[in-house]
């Protein structure tokens, strides 16, 4: 069920460039699953299109998002005070497929930059399912505010600053699944790694969106079966379905 909900800002902090935005949005909180996102409506004016932002965490009625200032729209968001009400639409998209990842499975969760955001909600869910999770995160600069919350939910956490996250991956992994979100070159390298070890890999992709509802056909990703919609068929795909070079 997709909900267009009025959400009140409960907390809004800037942790070295990663903004944590906590919203009271009970209906979306109830419905969301890991890897899904919301559309965040801006205060009209200059920015008529909503911004897609992944769900970072859910605690009871509170939906938390983590975003970086990437342009004019996210810059306008940084000014929002606590108590301010906004509109959000969600939960949207397919999310990660994790139903079968139970206590016998070892899973690698690999993120780059703000792509680590949706992976926290994911890791919490995997933890509850008792999967064994190894976390690999890569950042350009220090991002301890994004890394710290993972502690306690994962078996191993490895962090790389300034290099390639794939350099930290083990030569004989044996993971049941690899789940990743980050810059395209990183995810492509992760997908190559997964394929070379015959492990299934799910990637979370981005594309510019207008409606977020599958209506405008604006957010296409090139796949083996032609164009598919990032907002509706995605944002998560099996890495073998994606046509990376398109």
């Amino acid at each position: 069920m997709k909900i267009h909900e009025t959400a009140t800002i409960k907390a809004h902090t800037n942790k070295s460039g990663y903004y944590n935005l906590s919203l009271y949005a009970p209906q979306i909180a109830k419905a969301a699953k890991p890897g899904q996102f919301v559309m965040v409506y801006l205060d009209k004016g200059e920015h008529l299109l909503p911004r897609p932002i992944s769900i970072y965490d859910i605690k009871e009625d509170i939906v938390t998002l983590v975003y970086v200032e990437a342009g004019a729209g996210t810059k306008a968001m940084t000014k929002w005070p606590i108590g301010h009400s906004i509109k959000i639409l969600g939960p949207l998209g397919n999310g990660f497929t994790i139903d079968l990842l139970g206590e016998r499975e070892r899973v690698a969760v690999i993120g780059g930059g703000v792509g680590a955001a949706p992976l926290f909600f994911l890791t919490e869910a995997l933890y509850r399912q008792r999967a064994k999770v190894d976390i690999y995160l890569g950042f350009r600069d220090d991002a301890s505010s994004l890394v710290k919350p993972f502690e306690g939910f994962a078996d191993n956490i490895k962090v790389d600053i300034g290099g390639f996250v794939t350099d930290m991956l083990p030569p004989n992994p044996g993971y049941s699944a690899i789940l990743t979100c980050g810059p395209i070159p990183m995810m492509k390298a992760v997908a190559d790694y997964a394929h070379s070890h015959n492990m299934p890999c799910q990637v979370s992709l981005e594309e510019r969106m207008a409606c977020g509802l599958g209506a405008c056909k604006g957010c296409v990703v090139k796949t083996m079966v032609g164009y598919q919609l990032c907002c509706d068929d995605g944002p998560v795909w099996d890495s073998k379905e994606v046509k990376w070079d398109a």
């Binding site: 008529l48 594309e207 957010c219 296409v220 090139k222 164009y227 398109a246």
Partner: peptide
């Protein structure tokens, strides 16, 4: 099939 991405761009007062 439609056109290659990007297919949308926000502009001042529209898209």
């Amino acid at each position: 099939e439609g056109n290659p991405p990007h297919r949308t761009a926000e502009t001042y007062g529209g898209m």
